[in-house]
């Protein structure tokens, strides 16, 4: 089942297209990293996905064909928006009560136990908590709904490294336990390789790449060799760095017999490296054909 399916999805604000021609089919069970610079269209896509805004053109559905914004979708998707919006004047206890009353299913016992473990007292006002605690509170509220999809908009941007680690550890543990799918947007690339297993790169409102991380890594190599030598014509060069005598090429392999000629160095490309290269590339790349053995 696909957790998200879009077909030529687009959203226009006034005269500008914040998102256009977005076609995705993302299977469930992954942590999808939605990566791109500020203003790329990540928040727009997420807002459409959770039903906060509508699409101008195209189709979109979640969780295997459910319309976005429908009661079934609202029940199954939990969203933590940018800057973790919480009612600052409400106590933690009141916030739990509020969330319970706004949902059909809410695991209050889980939420209270988690907050106890984190040392967040229920009588404190949400606005008085530290940034990390607010993030954990927002995440707890989302996870206590036992959603099938968790959507996070730049969740770790305001957090210090320790808080960031704890936050992501909680998300991953929930994935391991509940079979949760996660879509997470970020404009940073740090720790991408550790947390994401599906990557969607987006820039200027256009999806530049979307593929499982395993496929991406299997399909690319960084080769180093002398300038001017005949390259394998089957290589699709994504990015090249050349000086007088030596060049490095980030290439996408096409077939089974791609190999590195003698004298050339070759290494696997890192996920962050690949993301940067595809974000920089000016032309829209061809879709990535999945490697059979990785399925």
């Amino acid at each position: 089942m696909n957790i998200l399916e879009t077909e030529a999805l687009g959203r226009r604000y006034g005269g500008t297209w914040a998102l256009r021609d977005c076609s995705l089919a993302i299977p469930e069970g992954h942590l999808v990293a939605l990566v791109g610079p500020n203003g790329a269209g990540k928040t727009t896509l997420l807002n459409i996905l959770v039903g906060l805004t509508g699409a101008t053109t195209g189709n979109v559905s979640v969780l295997g064909g459910i319309p976005v914004g429908s009661p079934a979708a609202l029940d199954a998707i939990a969203f933590v928006a940018q800057d973790m919006p919480l009612y600052r004047h409400l106590t933690v206890a009141d916030t739990l009560h509020l969330t319970r009353n706004l949902n059909h299913d809410f695991d209050g016992a889980y939420a209270r136990a988690r907050l106890r473990d984190l040392g967040i007292a229920e009588k404190h006002r949400a606005g008085k908590l530290s940034g990390g605690q607010q993030a954990q509170l927002a995440l707890t509220l989302a996870l206590a709904r036992h959603p099938r999809l968790l959507v996070l908009d730049e969740p770790t941007a305001p957090l210090d490294p320790l808080a960031r680690h704890d936050f992501m550890a909680t998300v991953m543990a929930a994935m391991a336990e509940d079979g949760l799918s996660v879509i997470l947007s970020s404009h940073g690339l740090a720790e991408l390789e550790r947390v994401a297993d599906y990557l969607v790169l987006i820039a200027h409102g256009v999806v530049r790449l979307d593929a499982p991380v395993d496929d991406l890594v299997a399909r690319h190599r960084v080769v180093t060799g002398p300038v001017g030598e005949q390259n394998d014509p089957r290589w699709q060069v994504v990015e090249s760095t050349a000086a007088g005598a030596q060049q490095h090429l980030l290439v996408r392999l096409q077939g089974p017999n791609d190999h590195v000629p003698d004298g050339w160095e070759s290494r696997a490309a890192g996920v962050e490296e690949l993301a940067l290269a595809y974000l920089r590339e000016s032309s829209v790349p061809t879709p990535l054909v999945p490697v059979e053995a990785s399925r």
């Binding site: 609202l74 928006a81 709904r145």
Partner: peptide, 12 residues
């Protein structure tokens, strides 16, 4: 405050 992003994505 942006809390509509919380309130309007709850189940109700």
């Amino acid at each position: 405050t942006g809390t509509f992003r919380f309130a309007w994505t709850q189940g109700v």
